[in-house]
Each structure stands twice: as structure tokens, then as C-alpha cells.
Design a protein around this nucleic acid. Structure first.
Lengths: 186, 186
DNA sequence: GTCTATAGGGGGATAGAC
DNA sequence: GTCTATCCCCCTATAGAC
């Protein structure tokens, strides 16, 4: 795998998460990397192909995290905390998550990006539901209602938590982070 | 106040909430209204001025709702439900809220839009905290932790709830809506 | 108020040389 | 792989006529 290709994807992801999909250009990437616009097109013929690759890579990273957590036999608390740490880090870096960045642009995205975005969102919610369900059955967690609904609530806290913290110019994501955990305590 | 001006603002708001700030143009508005690009510039010299006016109007609508609720002496449950109905309606129309639409574009917005967006976000959270605090003291609501943190959690549920429902192609905002209310029940 | 016309810039993308 | 050069389109914005 080419180093330039990886740098383009990394930079593209940063730009999406800080400025938004429709606000960044191939020029932003090429000038930052000290190459020309055409060189970026060599690796990613279209912006759509770049966007799709970025979302796919994000989903792969998520799957790797999940596998890692399972192989180490982490309990549900630790699994949830590990996942939430990703968002704490994003908040520190003043970046949104991919889903919260691309979601508002949904109606302007090509079908391939849309489809990957939906797949990733479903996958995260499915995993989160599962963690919550298992934790509830073991008595590790306590909450009202269906695990699926709870997963949606918690995930929306993380997604919009990053957006609101950035608007408010606060790194008070810890308030959300801590409140979610406190709510789940038996 | 000019009718054309009002139509421009209405259409601009729709475009922001369905396609995003950086994805709509004066042409989108002028062609829809059957006028020319230059006519839109007559009312709003710059896109920044249009965006700022739209956010200000949104905040005014919110203030009117708050005053209306207070003058009718609605209890905290009814006040919260009225507020949440705005989001249920947005979800039905497949639109995001202004804050969830503009938030991800924050770093590309001019200072005047940014400042209005921050003001509006702070105002909503302040109002929501107040409702929650009063409801808690009266025993109408029940929740753990600080009312301010709870307001941030609930508001982020609404903001990202709209985004996620649209990605998932579901109108399952009702799950979030109901779960929030159930959580607050004593 | 709305128009025509246009300035001036940036965007995504491609052909073909090296 | 990376370059130069270029196409063609859309964007925001303005001048000046009606």
C-alpha cells in the first residue's frame, strides 16, 4: 500500500471531520502534501471514491477494535469505556466523528458513500445494543427500556456531544461521558 | 416585510436543513422562486447575511415558543413535550434542526453565523436546564446528576436523533422521543 | 425590485508528457 | 507516480439598465 495513498486518506478524513465533506477540495489535500491535484486523482479518480474509502476504513478500524476487545475478554464496562474513549479523544482534537460529519450532508452524497455510512451506523448500533443487552443480563448495567433504544440514545449522545461541544467552545465532553456511565450504574 | 424576502429565508432554511450550508447556492433559491440570482442578492447581499438572518429567526421562534408556554402556565412535562414535538415534526419532514445542520460546518462559517449559532445553542440548553431543574424540584421529573448535564444529554439525543434516523432511513425518532420521556418518569 | 451581463475565482476531472 | 495544461462547470458577488 502506497504511503501517499495513506496520507491522502488520513488528510481527507481530517478535512471531513473538521470542515465537512462539501467544504474540502483536492487542492486542500495536494497542497498540504506538496503534490499536485492530478496526483490525488491518480489514487482516487473521484471525490466519491475517496469518501467511500475513508468510510470503509473507519468501519474496518471499528471492527478491529471489536475483535480486539473480544479476544481479550473485556467485560461490558471496559468495552463501552474503550469505545467512548474514541469520542473523548475526538473532542480533545476538536474533530467530529465520521458519522456526525457526513450525516448532515447525506442528501448531497453519492449512493456509495451513503450506503457505507448506513452500514457503519447500523453496525455500531448493533454492537452497542449487544454490549448493553449482555451487560444488563449480567447485572453490570441498569437501564429502562429496550437495549436497541438505549444504544440509539447513547450513540446520539456521543455524535451530537462532539458537535455541541465544538459550538460551545468547550471541552466539556467529559460531562456527557460521565453522565452516560453514571446512568448505567446499577 | 417583503414576501420575497420571507420566501428566500424559508427556502434557505429548508436547504440548510436538508442539504447543508455549503451545498446550497443562490441559484437554488432563485430558480425555485422563479427569479434571478441578482434579486436574491438584493435582499441578502451575501450568503453570510442570509445565514445569519436564518439563525436569528430560528432563535426568535424559540423565544416565542418559550414565552407562549410560560404565559399559559404549562407544567414542565407539557413544556418539554411541546419542545420535543418540534423534533418529531422535523423527523417526519426528513429535515435536521438548524443546530445539527450548521454545527458540522462550523469551521467554514463566518464569525457572525458562528456567534448566533453559539448563542442559540446556549439559550436552548439554558432553558432546558431550567425546565429540568424545576421539574425535578417539584417531583415531576426524576434523573441522576446535574440538570445542566441532563439538558446536554437530552438535547444531543434530539440533534443527533434526527441525523441518525435519516441515515438509517427510518422515522424511528419516536423510539428516542419515548425513551427520553420514560427515563424522566419518577 | 428585478433584470442582463459579467467579473473573478474555485471546483472536479482528464489528456498526455516525463 | 507525478507533472503541466486545460476543460467545463458552478459559485458568490457586483454594475448598471429598466
Amino acid at each position: 500500500m502506497s504511503v501517499t495513498r495513506e496520507k491522502i486518506m488520513e488528510l481527507g478524513e481530517d478535512l471531513i471531520r473538521t470542515r465537512g465533506y462539501n467544504a474540502f477540495s483536492y487542492q486542500d489535500i495536494s497542497s498540504e502534501l506538496g503534490i499536485k491535484n492530478a496526483a490525488v486523482h491518480y489514487y482516487f479518480p473521484s471525490k466519491e471514491s475517496l469518501g467511500t474509502s475513508i468510510v470503509k476504513t473507519n468501519m474496518q478500524r471499528f471492527e478491529e477494535m471489536v475483535e480486539n476487545l473480544q479476544s481479550r475478554n473485556f467485560d461490558e464496562w471496559s468495552q463501552l469505556e474503550t469505545f467512548m474513549k474514541i469520542y473523548v479523544k475526538s473532542n480533545r482534537e476538536l474533530k467530529l466523528c465520521i458519522i456526525g460529519s457526513l450525516g448532515p450532508d447525506l442528501n448531497t452524497l453519492n449512493e456509495s458513500i451513503r450506503s457505507e455510512l448506513k452500514k457503519m451506523t447500523e453496525r455500531i448500533l448493533q454492537w452497542l445494543s449487544c454490549i448493553l443487552k449482555n451487560g444488563l443480563e449480567k447485572g453490570i448495567f441498569s437501564f429502562k427500556g429496550d437495549p436497541k433504544d438505549r444504544a440509539l440514545l447513547i450513540f446520539s449522545n456521543m455524535v451530537a456531544g462532539l458537535q455541541l461541544a465544538r459550538i460551545l467552545e468547550k471541552t466539556d465532553f467529559k460531562a456527557i461521558h460521565q453522565a452516560i456511565l453514571d446512568d448505567l450504574k446499577p
